[in-house]
Design a protein around this nucleic acid. Structure first.
Lengths: 194, 194
DNA sequence: AGATTCCTTTTACATATGTTAAAAAAATCA
DNA sequence: TGATTTTTTTAACATATGTAAAAGGAATCT
């Protein structure tokens, strides 16, 4: 069971995005399940329909899918980051993507159905959720631009400056597919920068 | 000035996504400005902050930006499609992207500030807007996946099956940058498929 | 600690895509 | 219609990235 205020760091982040009243906060807390996953453990499997909204409480996670038998990483999430598989959550279709812990991680899991049921009663909660979605959307647009017209080396350099924590904490084989290139190619790029 | 029910086709689409009451519909109508743009005309310029939500009423439009002096097309919009530059609308930052008519087009323009002001009074209107954003987000995720791990030829084939209207109506030079390749490369791919 | 597995780099070669320039084809305009 | 401009294709060559296999290095497990 959750201890009082254990969730405070996450709720502090929420409040920066959308100020929440005491009532909203109290209504949301019971929906938050703190779950522990070991490094490499699967948080959600491929084929499951996304009915849970996750936040990384501590640790790190990724979303990936299989393409021709090998894994393609689509997204990395760190502390306080939202994890949803939007293409499933918003359509009700099963997701072809999995969520996996990259380190021993604590994750806050919220049932999307229970969350959405609170929206009519607490409009600010709906606004918070939608602002989080908007932020994810904007981030995805930026990644799209990068993939559309930067070279592999430019994308790697950009990741290095924009998200150094990814380079530091994540195995290169995951970063390669995230950048849309092979591991060999990434290795080549790295050695050319030395 | 708008004639009664001129907007009906667009509102029919809205109702499929989120049923709107008579009151909501009547509140939204006065915000809808029907504007005409000639082929190639600029709907919004680079550098402007996005404070308008557009829908294509008839015709077609695109979002593009400049990269090293040449245009990169990010998005095509056809009848009833939403056009927003999310990275500006949701952040308040000036957009580096322009919106341009690709044919003689009628466009419904809605002030985002006026629209957002209606949200507290009409929650279903907020829900409609957020569902439209969610759909755009999901579409963007699909494009990201394609750019991340399909070859140029696979991306072209996919566009051919998923959005034949783009191939039919849009100049190839715009399609090339949309696919993340040069015009020469696209031409080569097309001839190899013949 | 040693053995095993996993991750990263390197090499050699193949292929896809980019670049520049020119020709061909199509669209636009007076 | 004919002239002009724009778009698309083709050619030749350069470069980036992919593929497969092997070696080296690091992490993990008992």
């Amino acid at each position: 069971m959750l201890q009082a205020d254990q969730l405070k760091p996450l709720f502090d982040v929420f409040n920066l995005i959308q100020p929440l009243s005491f009532q909203v906060t109290e209504a949301l807390k019971p929906l938050c399940q703190l779950r522990y996953f070991k490094k490499h453990e699967e948080i959600q499997a491929i084929g499951a329909t996304c009915k849970t909204v996750y936040f990384v409480f501590s640790g790190a996670a990724r979303i990936f899918y299989l393409k021709d038998g090998h894994e393609v990483t689509e997204y990395f999430a760190f502390e306080n980051d939202l994890i949803i598989r939007a293409e499933s959550l918003f359509t009700g279709n099963p997701s072809k993507k999995a969520i996996q812990a990259l380190e021993n991680s604590n994750v806050v899991a919220i049932s999307s159905e229970a969350l959405f049921r609170l929206f009519d009663q607490y409009p600010d909660l709906e606004k918070l959720f939608n602002k989080l979605v908007q932020r994810s959307y904007v981030e995805t647009l930026k990644r799209l631009e990068n993939l559309q017209f930067l070279t592999a080396e430019e994308r790697y350099r950009k990741l290095l400056t924009d998200h150094p924590e990814i380079i530091q904490k994540i195995p290169l084989k995951y970063i390669a597919s995230y950048l849309g290139i092979t591991q060999v190619s990434l290795s080549r790029i790295r050695s050319s920068l030395r």
